[in-house]
Nucleic acid binder design. Structure first.
Length: 650
RNA sequence: GCCGACGUAGCUCAGUGGUAGAGCGCUUCCUUGGUAAGGAAGAGGUCACGGGUUCAAAUCCCGUCGUUGGCUCCA
């Protein structure tokens, strides 16, 4: 006897089917075209196999390649084929986990003594496709916990055994295709044949469960596609992204460099880069002045005890440079890894009344941290960097308001610099590991609430991540992706009840009693180094006009007009426009090409006509000829463009 | 720090056991040209560094340093 069930589709329509129907049949009942495209399905919110029978009323969402979750299914299934491929070449391989990631998938395996390197990629890809073309069906089956354990006992796979031991009996499934079996929750393509293209991207060491005390596995990264042409497009896109890499552009545009002789992770700012950085600092100084910050200056080193007091020594001592010892017995100084302890001492330099708060102390403070060598990356992770740091000391009742003001400042900065694609991430405690945080629970809860409310009241779209809070307090981070899609933290706002406690900071309240202020750490750029790196990648080296090293280059048609060209530069300099001249004995086409490559926003061309008329022929980088205008008119154009972008901070 | 790869001229890279190469850049000369590369000549390298194998090493092996893609941590 058959039962009818109701299937609700994402558009809200309800269709009736026999119980036991599967998603693929539903797709085919709608249209053949849909059936051809569908690669996965979500039943009541959970990814399932297309062939999983549905027995009861359900919401069904059919997924194809264009859905994010469809891609995940595709890539997860690909990870199975990768594992099968690895088993073919390395029969003793121990499989661990093989998830889909944002761009493809990986599989972590224990290869024992064997080594896998790039040279092996072509043969892996070839075998992978050979296997895929067999159109093996993925079949999911339930396994009892004891059977599952027995299976991997026989395989001597301690990793899978560990995974299974953490699973509930009755909730364990294996997935088979061809002669290959893997512990797997499910959500697969119907068969391997849909995978038409694969590229093994790289191989890397990865610790089991991300713990460096646990064995290191070999992680093989790959990406796969339903069409060969999509792989080609993807690889082309990666090539394009590499052109935006700040390390490449930083070199080409002469912004910064590194020297082995100075040391790893210690950037050297070249004149053009330093000037750009100085403009960024001045921009921030002006905004902060309006926002009520007071600049302070503190030294590059601090007494060891300062960091013992702050708690940083205990927490980050390992990540610091070795202490600096003085001739005085037992006296140790540290290169400062952060500015806050110094600022606490400035706060303490004079007694404070509740009327004085908030106190906002700002400093472009250069700090030094001993990052592991493998961590260093261009300007985004270095060992010496400058934070646009400030600490706000305020009353508990002022926290939310101060927090909102900082959000305004960060958004102002991002707007002036055309950062549109950022995510605001609220980092809260890890509910499963509350022990690793210091400070009073009630304070933590208040701080977390203040942050959430401040972002809500500012209408900021946020993502909440548990477990990412600093050890001393919750925070709001502004994250931006680099050219290769890796996410970096730029701006940060952090509430801290801990340091005021440790430094015994006080103010006198209206009740004439002593009270503890709250601290807010905040840095809109985060670090100048990282910020500039991300800025370079976002604008491909074409900086906003107000910021760019050279705003205008003046090109003479021939050497006969060099004197006129120098005069034009002189006039523009008087308008505070950064102009340089190209007096080389080159043809104009060549001079234009070079200026275009150097990404100089404006080119002014001066020849016979312009010399006689007192005009310049204007060309915009990337756009072309804008026609002829008077020099003053051009200066006005430049300054108006800058003003339009650089609205004042209010 | 660990795993993989890489290190040749200022830059980008070719050269994989037998006399160190190209393009761009740089210098000099010719050319004085109107919107993305004018021509010629020249200078420039302990092939990252140290050791080993070999008649012979940029090339093969070992170590060190640096860079790089990941893992972990963080701004």
């Amino acid at each position: 006897m058959s039962t009818k069930i109701n299937i609700t589709l994402p558009d809200g329509s309800v269709r009736q089917y026999e119980a036991g129907i599967n998603s693929f049949e539903i797709a085919r009942s709608i249209s053949e075209g849909l059936a051809r495209k569908v690669i996965s399905t979500k039943v009541n919110g959970r990814i399932r196999e297309l062939v999983t029978p549905i027995q009861e009323d359900a919401e069904v969402q059919l997924l194809n390649w264009d859905d994010k979750e469809g891609k995940k299914t595709f890539w997860h299934s690909s990870a199975h084929v990768l594992a099968q491929t690895l088993e073919f070449f390395y029969p003793n391989v121990k499989l661990t986990i093989g998830p889909a990631i944002d761009q493809g998938f990986y599989y972590d395996v224990d290869l024992g003594e064997e080594v896998l390197s790039e040279k092996d990629f072509p043969k892996l890809e070839q075998k992978f496709l050979e296997l895929a073309r067999e159109k093996f069906e993925f079949q999911i089956r339930e396994v009892s916990k004891s059977d599952a354990l027995a299976y991997y006992e026989k395989e001597h796979n301690e990793f899978k055994l560990e995974l299974i031991s953490n699973l509930e009996d009755g909730d364990i499934t294996f997935c088979d295709h061809s002669n290959f079996t893997d512990l797997c929750r499910g959500g697969h393509l119907p068969n391997t044949g849909l995978i038409k293209a694969v590229k093994i991207m790289n191989v890397a060491g990865a610790y089991w469960r991300g713990d460096e005390k646990k064995p290191q596995l070999t992680r093989v990264y790959g990406i796969s596609f339903p069409k060969q042409s999509m792989l080609k497009d993807y690889l082309h896109m990666l090539e394009e992204a590499k052109k935006r890499d700040h390390r490449k552009l930083g070199k080409e545009l002469e912004l910064f460099t590194f020297s082995d002789k100075v040391g790893q992770g210690l950037p050297l700012w070249l004149p053009k880069g330093a000037a750009l950085r100085e403009r960024l600092e001045n921009f921030m100084r002006a905004a902060q002045k309006k926002a009520g910050y007071e600049p302070v200056v503190t030294p590059h080193i601090g007494h060891k005890n300062l960091y013992v007091t702050s708690g940083h020594y205990e927490k980050y001592g390992e990540d610091s440079f070795k202490p600096i010892e003085t001739p005085h017995e037992g006296e140790e100084f540290f290169l400062k890894p952060m500015n806050c302890p110094h600022h606490c001492e400035i706060y303490k330099a004079s007694p404070k009344s509740y009327r004085d708060l908030p106190v906002r102390l700002a400093e472009f403070g250069t700090v030094y941290r001993y990052e592991q060598s493998g961590e260093l990356h261009g300007l985004t992770r270095v060992r010496g960097f400058t934070q646009d740091d400030a600490h706000i000391f305020c009353r508990v009742d002022q926290v939310k308001d101060e927090f909102k003001k900082v959000i305004d400042l960060v958004l102002y900065v991002f707007k002036a610099l055309d950062f549109k694609n950022f995510t605001a991430q609220i980092s809260l405690r890890d509910p499963d590991n509350l022990g690793k945080y210091i400070g009073d629970t009630a304070n933590w809860e208040k701080a977390e609430r203040d942050i959430i409310e401040a972002t809500e009241e500012r209408g900021l779209k946020t993502e909440t991540v548990y477990g990412e809070a600093a050890f001393y307090g919750p925070k709001l981070d502004f994250m931006v992706e680099d050219a290769l899609g890796r996410e970096w933290q730029l701006g940060t706002i952090q509430v801290d009840y801990n340091l005021p406690e440790r430094f015994e900071l006080e103010y006198t309240g209206s009740d004439d009693n002593k009270h503890r202020p709250v601290m807010i750490h905040r840095a809109p750029f985060g670090s100048l180094e990282r910020f500039v790196a991300l800025l370079i990648e976002h604008c491909e080296g074409k900086f906003p006009l107000w910021l760019t090293p050279e705003q205008v280059t003046i090109l003479s048609i021939s050497e006969k007009y060099n004197e006129t060209v120098r005069n034009v530069a002189h006039v523009l300099n008087n308008y505070d426009i950064r102009a340089l001249v190209d007096e080389r004995a080159e043809k104009i086409g060549r001079k234009i090409r070079d200026a275009e490559i150097q990404k100089i926003p404006y080119m002014l061309i001066v020849g016979e006509k312009e010399m006689n008329e007192g005009t310049v022929s204007v060309r915009r980088q990337g756009e072309g000829d804008l026609g002829t205008m008077e020099i003053e008119a051009f200066a006005k154009l430049v300054n108006e463009e800058i003003e339009a972008k650089l609205q004042e901070f209010n």
